[in-house]
Design a protein around this nucleic acid. Structure first.
Length: 590
RNA sequence: GGACCGGUAGUUCAAUCGGUUAGAGCGCCAGCCUGUCACGCUGGAAGUUGCGAGUUCGAGUCUCGUCCGGUCCGCCA
């Protein structure tokens, strides 16, 4: 139908007779002349209609924006100074000799502009229109190129791409499952995979000693700007290797992406921090190392502070820590400090204490308890100088880390202390094996229940609360982009970890019996990891909205305004699935 | 489950202290216009102020509820 695409023609094509098809981006009808910008995925070109073909020109002048047309004509150089520098095809134009309307477009529900001018709900309802904008479609192009680069790297390293089931068994640990009722097995359900974790371990038992998959995963949890109910992982597993082999592989994947997408060499190996060190210094298990600020331990000052909150925190086994923000003292008015307090309290606990060191001296809301001398010793211990802002937090270790870690991120972003042009990657290792769940009153796997615990600690009888795992996360610019672990490959060890998690032998047998049985027949030591592919595309694409990098994303309430899912189904369908809706509320429509 | 922000013409926004007929840009419709590229000019049409109650002489504006979108907390092995 078309001989070329809209972004393809250049000055050297002058005189060529071509047929172009695409969308009418804009019509400029000057009366005696009519210009039309024709657009497709590849670019845009100006089509000109001249009065020599009056009827054709009039018809073109009446075209609606976003109608689809086929134009035949001759490429010609634009006269004199009429070239458009902003357009790749700007030196030429197409003189139309015929124009066929392939599909007339109604008036659009919103106008297609470079910026996100229309509301997101409207753009999601008409996602296919939103994706016509090059500023949006470029994310999908990038995603494609990244997926291909990953495949090339892993294929080159002899990793085999194997597909695993989408309909699987529901598992107790982890996120809430999406369930699929079975028609054939009354009262039984499949679950959609939260990840192909057990399958890839079984593939190791099968002897596919290097596996990968770019695969959809599903978790029925509440959404965020970087979380969707269905998302994509680059899933990797290898046999006869340990954490270093997996990390080498993941680094090769990242190096390939940097080379192919950014044209840069990623310096390897990447730096490593233990979980404890990351928490201590940056208040986060996914520290953003683009911010040159570190948390300071100030516990020794608590007793002399004369401030109850600090004193009690230390007495109860907590910590007192501070973070210095260079040069921000003058910028922090009363109002800004209040806003900071609100944010801190929003995160939990009693909030933070702010000490300002301005030209007038030291000031703080706790100055009346501590006195000036104590404030002086605090800023000295924290390494502040005049003009700096010191933020203090006291209490339980993880809460203090969370508070100061969040302050670090927020203030650095707001005040330009973050170099957004750079990328900082690192491995975080030695995660805690378990975390105590107050709600369920039991220990939960911090990573997942197939992660190997630290062998020496286990042999030495270290309590659950202090036990470290052989898990690791890859962090880029403050985001966890991959996580993995050395897996348990011995049945006895796996059973022991299940028991530590409060999973009875019977339940383990019922839920994971197939895996435990597989381990009986010769299991290679294995390890692996999984990248959050959507987040990776977000970082490379420079967006903070995960919906940008997914062709058809869901809203905050896990719905699609475009096709109206989730929707109701016929009574007949329910009958077949042996389901009955109870407590039915109107709202979702079929 | 909780906190906060938003919802006014097709669309993006405005509307003073609660007060006349709810305005403007873009788009749309009609007309004019021979080098535009966000073309320009003239005129016109276009509104259940998300929905439902309440307060009031009077509600886009205040109150309550509800729905939708977004950001965050909880949650996300």
């Amino acid at each position: 139908m078309r001989s070329h695409t809209c972004g393809q023609l250049r000055a050297e094509d002058e005189g060529r007779r071509v047929r172009l098809a695409g969308w009418v981006n804009r019509v400029r009808n000057l009366g005696g002349f009519c210009f039309l910008d024709l657009r497709d995925r590849y670019g845009m070109i100006q089509v000109v209609f001249e009065p020599e073909r009056q009827e054709l020109m009039d018809a073109a002048g009446r075209l609606h924006m976003e109608s689809v047309i086929l134009v035949e004509g001759v490429v010609r150089r634009r006269p004199g100074s009429m070239a458009n520098q902003e357009l790749a095809t700007g030196e030429i134009e197409l003189l139309a000799e015929s124009c066929k309307l392939l599909s007339r477009a109604d008036v659009l529900p919103f106008t297609l502009e470079a910026e996100d001018t229309a509301g997101e709900d409207l753009r999601l309802k008409h996602r296919y229109l939103d994706l016509r904008r090059p500023t949006k479609s470029r994310y999908l192009l990038l995603r494609h190129r990244m997926a291909q680069a990953v495949r090339r790297t892993l294929d080159g390293l002899e990793f085999l791409e194997v597909e695993t089931p989408i309909l699987m068994k529901s598992t107790p640990e982890g996120a809430r499952d999406y369930l699929v009722p079975s028609r054939i097995h009354a009262g039984c359900f499949y679950a959609l995979p939260q990840s192909p974790q057990t399958y890839k371990q079984l593939l190791m038992v099968s002897g596919f000693d290097r596996y990968f998959q770019i695969v959809k995963c599903f978790r029925d949890e509440d959404l965020r700007s970087d979380r969707q109910p269905e998302f994509t992982q680059i899933d990797i597993e290898l046999s006869f290797g340990d954490e270093l082999d997996v990390q080498d592989t993941a680094e090769a994947v990242m190096a390939g992406l940097f080379r192919e997408i950014k044209g840069e060499e990623l310096p390897l190996p990447l730096p490593r921090l233990t979980w404890r060190e990351a928490m201590d210094r940056f208040g986060s298990d996914k520290p953003d190392l683009r911010i040159p600020l570190e948390i300071r331990e100030l516990g020794a000052l608590a007793a002399s502070s004369n401030f109850g909150v600090f004193q009690q925190a230390l007495e109860q086994g907590g910590v007192l820590r501070g973070l210095v923000f260079p040069g921000l003292a003058e910028e922090f008015s009363r109002k800004k400090i209040d806003a900071l307090q609100d944010y801190a309290r929003h995160l939990g606990g009693q909030g933070v204490v702010v000490v300002r060191w301005t030209a007038e001296g030291l000031s703080s809301q706790i100055g009346k308890f501590t006195g000036e001398e104590w404030l002086k010793s605090a800023v000295a211990a924290a390494g502040a100088t005049q003009g700096d802002l010191l933020v203090l937090a006291a209490g339980e270790y993880r809460l203090v880390c969370k508070l100061l870690g969040n302050m670090r991120l927020r203030l650095a972003k707001e005040h330009g202390l973050l170099d957004a042009s750079a990328h900082k990657l690192l491995w975080v290792t030695d995660f805690p094996m378990f975390e105590y769940d107050d709600e369920e009153q039991r220990w939960m796997a911090a990573h997942h229940p197939f992660t190997q615990p630290n062998a020496e600690q286990l042999a030495a009888g270290v309590p659950e609360s202090d036990l470290l795992s052989r898990g690791y996360d890859l962090v880029m610019d403050g985001q966890e982009i991959a996580g993995g672990s050395v897996r348990i490959h011995e049945r006895e060890m796996q059973a022991r970890v299940f028991r530590m998690l409060g999973i009875s032998d019977e339940e383990a047998q019922e839920k994971f019996g197939f895996l435990l049985e597989a381990f009986r027949y010769g299991t290679p030591p294995h390890a692996g990891c999984a990248f959050g592919f959507d987040r990776l595309v977000m970082i490379f694409g420079g967006t903070e909205n995960i919906r940008d990098v997914i062709a058809f994303p869901k809203t905050n309430r896990a719905a699609s305004p475009m096709d109206g899912c989730p929707g109701r189904v016929d009574a007949r369908q329910l009958d077949e699935l042996h389901l009955k809706i109870v407590g039915d509320k109107p709202g979702g429509d079929a």
